[in-house]
Design a protein around this nucleic acid. Structure first.
Length: 154
DNA sequence: GCCAACGTTGGC
DNA sequence: GCCAACGTTGGC
């Protein structure tokens, strides 16, 4: 069964344009257990992803991606040079797990957070809840479908 | 830059 | 295991 997700990124660090350029990218640097658990336990190849930009000028859903790998250890946790290096994560018992995300589409017009919050069809979506800092969130199929329709419509 | 919300750490 | 202190996220 295909599931639907929202994954946050900061365009100053790694945004939709970086993903488009790389085509497929390991979603590294996630250092939150709940977000990790979604990648490790719940994501399956073929799952569909809303790519979201935060901490920037235009906040909102900016495009689409797809899960294209099984979960595997986040290599950046073992890399002393990486800002995501975590000395507690051992190669033999990795703490941090990720999946590869493939670029699918960049929206011509973003679906902004304010649009999402104002849309009665999107009531209850996690990203619109105050204090929702989780960088990976499950999205219901109707919400996913509606956001894609908003991006492709008007 | 502010600050509310939230996760993590560490003393006890 | 509690909880205060601290750090981070992220919208505004």
């Amino acid at each position: 069964m295909t599931r639907y997700w929202l994954m946050k990124s900061e365009p100053t660090t790694f945004g939709i344009d970086n993903l488009k350029a790389e085509k497929v990218s390991p979603w590294d640097g996630v250092r939150n257990y709940q977000a990790r658990n979604f990648m490790r336990d719940d994501m399956k190849m073929g799952d569909q992803v809303l790519i979201y930009h935060s901490a920037c000028e235009e906040i909102g859903v900016v495009g689409l991606g797809e899960v294209v790998s099984k979960p595997y250890p986040d290599p950046s946790a073992f890399n002393r040079q990486s800002k995501y290096f975590d000395p507690k994560s051992k190669v033999e018992s990795p703490t941090w797990i990720l999946v590869d995300i493939q670029f699918k589409e960049k929206f011509k017009k973003i679906v902004s957070l304010s649009t999402i919050k104002a849309d009665p069809k999107l009531v209850g979506i996690v990203v619109a809840q105050t204090g929702s800092r989780l960088s990976i969130q499950p999205v219901s199929k109707p919400h996913y479908t509606h956001i894609v329709a908003l991006a492709h419509g008007d």
